[in-house]
Amino acid sequence: MEYSWDFSIVFLRPGNWARGFAVTMVYAVATTVAGLVLGLVCGMVMLSRHTILASPIHGYVQFFRSTPLLIQIVWFYYALPVVIGLNIPAWLAAGLGLTLYMGAFSAEIFRAGIMSIDKGQWQAARALGMMPVQMMRRIILPQATRRMVPPFVNQSVLQLKNTSLLSVVAVPDLMYTGTLLVSETFRPLEIYTALAVFYFIILYPLQRLAKLLEQRDDV
């Protein structure tokens, strides 16, 4: 049996693709940034020896790292409004799952980055008479951020790919746009191939950046 490829149908709905691209990018950037901020705060609390605050944060991080993102998104979309008895907008509910997911991974990257700095660096800074905030700002963070950038970039790449899961709750992202087009044209091979190419075009530069940062040898 011979399959005759027809990629022209991919370009059937340019307006939809443009919207899908915009939705994917907005969700990816917004949930990555919000997740990073959340992760920094949680990571700090985990590093402090404030046990009353730290143990629920540890619980959150463990839970979100150990459950499938798809379930988190579906849960936030359908169950959260019921549980809190509030009608939160669908777009927000969908983004919340993604944000908390990014936050959990960021918190761990941040915590591990700080912990990876040699104890001797802390001691040398303390021996000079630095206060904890000075040590962090002048000695620990400048070294730790260089180590944290590659895993953060990797996590952001994953985050952008993970936005494709939003399509299950009818957020009109790239993936959702493609799925609609498939049901209209019955041409899944062409459309999913095109989708893969779209994601690749967005993510390849980011991947290259991550590689460059990893190879940087200034520390």
Partner: peptide, 8 residues
């Protein structure tokens, strides 16, 4: 013993 200079 191990210097602990600030590498950055």
């Amino acid at each position: 013993q191990q210097f602990h200079l600030f590498p950055h």
